[in-house]
Design a protein around this nucleic acid. Sequence first.
DNA 1: TTGTCAACTGTCAGCCACTGACATTAGCCT
DNA 2: AGGCTAATGTCAGTGGCTGACAGTTGACAA
Lengths: 218, 218
Amino acid sequence: MATPTPQAAPPGGLRERKKQRTRDALIRAALELFTEQGYEATTIDEIAEAVNVSQRTYFRYFANKEEVAFAVQEMVEARFLQELRERPADEAPLTALRSAVMTAWDEIGSAIESMVPVELHMRAYRMIESTPALVAAHLRRSSDLEEQIAQLIAGREGLDVDADPRPRVVVAAFCGVMRVAGKVWGEGQECSVASIRRLTQSYLDHIGPAIADTWRDR
Amino acid sequence: MATPTPQAAPPGGLRERKKQRTRDALIRAALELFTEQGYEATTIDEIAEAVNVSQRTYFRYFANKEEVAFAVQEMVEARFLQELRERPADEAPLTALRSAVMTAWDEIGSAIESMVPVELHMRAYRMIESTPALVAAHLRRSSDLEEQIAQLIAGREGLDVDADPRPRVVVAAFCGVMRVAGKVWGEGQECSVASIRRLTQSYLDHIGPAIADTWRDR
DNA sequence: TTGTCAACTGTCAGCCACTGACATTAGCCT
DNA sequence: AGGCTAATGTCAGTGGCTGACAGTTGACAA
């Protein structure tokens, strides 16, 4: 799986490409089936069969049934974290967070599209929000991500998350806003990546004034 | 017209009492097994066998494996909501929330003890926090409860939760504090109900000053 | 080219969570 | 006492998930 394979990124050997294709096919088939007939009503056998692999193979790519539903989000989050790690150290926390998202969105669009159509991803997002079992998983994932971001921000500032509450607070506010942006996007019609980028920007623009010292001046 | 119930309030019929006993026994056995050997490592067959009922009977009391782990919390939350509904309408939202918790704790102690030893409940709480599958369920439950409370508060104030953000904001702050109090309690040694009541009170006492205008005076 | 190695996959057997159908038991009420 | 019905047990089956083993196929060197 993630063994030290010294190969290029795009080509990477026939084997590697085949694996990637199978993985993408599984994700695509799963999301298609989930959104069409519902998550619970879809069996892993169906997904596997749609891609012409055995059920066992599915479980070699994804640890469980949920995981495939979050594959795209997983990728988006990883890119964001990477972007955040690369922000210059002298940026203020909220600025770094904001810049990381905005920069990330620019390239994420095509990254998503190379996995599944954005429109399918949007339908999948809505499906998650309306499936109790997936809502739970989603919350847990969000909570984990938030913690990771908080650790990262604390690291940048040389703080300890357990000693100083500020990292967690900033990150909580940031993630809260991102969550709302995501929700609004999911409820809207515009399913383009550009629209969520615009939404994100607009919402983040409100966070500064709300937190800044000028707050008290109203 | 006349109530033909020749029995006291608590019993209420042999059948009813038997059911209650079975339910309590299932909860107790489950928590005992979960905390001793872990959640995943415990099968429902084991729980059922410990109470001398069939697996099928377990599923007539609880919808799934998780549910039994949250039975006590479920009860606590129900009591709190009931208490909140009974608060006078002219109380300010945060005051009503605060009063409801504090009042609820007074009676909840014995209510918990009548189900399982408080010490077991505390171990169960810790077990939940360290079991990924249960963390997810816990988050989802919390999120649901928060929404219910927000609706209730909005109702008291004659507001619409979707139109006015204030109900959700107050409730979010309140629940956040409650969550922290619960977490601190779980990490501490003192497993008495009195201690969590004290913790709750102390934490809630900080909410006012933190929100009030005097904040800027530090 | 070919042979070896390692990775990937399929098959099979099995555990466990969960459910519907039906038979059986046991409170409840007249 | 006997009928009604809720509670329980039994059975069979589905689907998520895993370990073990064997077959296949890409990678790489001789």
